[in-house]
């Protein structure tokens, strides 16, 4: 079990990295990755929101949507839940963690409509929803939570790597038409294939099939 959880965790970071392999969450990836501090803060918020969102939406899907045969409401209900969560976190940070609140600034509400968070909650249901029947709810729930945190950490890894890339790119002097976003997109395109190279590595290290 632990081996499988570890395999899930690392596969979400390296093999199935949400940003660089699945291309979700590109908006904050390009927008907030200018500085290492802000990308770390943003990633922290994303990890937290992904974890909380999955913790709420997975049982919601298993115990409410599936028995009531309302699986098609998944998207709208999940968006509602995520929006509430992000608002809640914003209020929470403003009260108790002012420095982080100031650091995240305008980016925190962006997570509300971040496809990355919605994708995690939906894909987790797709991947581990079936495990409820075979392994029981508790095991599937833990798997899905580990997967969500792993996705968030993967997001953080991508953000940190790319903020490093961007500080280098910023010091360069690209041709006029490439300045700004174009050169950022080009460097993102060069960064992402390296993660393709991780394909299969986790299965072989942990010797499990995911």
């Amino acid at each position: 079990m632990i081996v499988k959880l570890a395999a899930i965790f690392f596969s979400m970071i390296l093999v199935n990295n949400y940003v660089l392999v699945k291309f979700y969450g590109i908006c904050p990836f390009l927008g907030v990755s200018k500085k290492l501090d802000s990308s770390l803060g943003m990633s922290g918020a994303v990890i937290f929101v992904m974890f909380m969102a999955t913790a709420v939406t997975f049982p919601l899907q298993i115990f409410v949507l599936d028995p009531a045969d309302l699986g098609y409401l998944q998207t709208i209900v999940f968006i509602l839940v995520i929006a509430v969560l992000v608002q809640f976190i914003e209020i929470f940070l403003k009260k108790y963690m002012v420095s982080l609140y100031n650091a995240l600034g305008v980016y925190l509400p962006l997570i509300t409509t971040n496809c990355c968070v919605l994708a995690v909650t939906i894909l987790v249901v797709d991947d581990y929803g079936a495990d409820v029947a075979t392994l029981g709810f508790a095991a599937a729930y833990i798997e899905s939570l580990v997967c969500a945190v792993g996705s968030g950490v993967g997001f953080m890894l991508a953000m940190c790597l790319f903020s490093g890339v961007r500080t280098r790119v910023e010091a360069c002097d690209p041709p006029e038409p490439f300045k700004g976003l174009p050169i950022t997109l080009v460097s993102a395109a060069i960064t992402s294939p390296y993660f393709m190279g991780f394909g299969g590595i986790v299965e072989n290290i942990f010797n499990v099939t995911l």
């Binding site: 309302l70 409401l73 709208i76 809640f88 209020i91 929470f92 403003k94």
Partner: peptide
């Protein structure tokens, strides 16, 4: 099923609204 869907969305929305209102009240800066 339409009724069920409407009820479900309303319930989820209402619960979320209550949580946010409570948070805004108790954690107001």
């Amino acid at each position: 099923s339409i009724v069920a869907a409407v009820i479900l969305c309303t319930v989820v929305g209402t619960v979320g609204a209550i949580v946010l209102v409570a948070a805004a009240k108790f954690m107001a800066v």
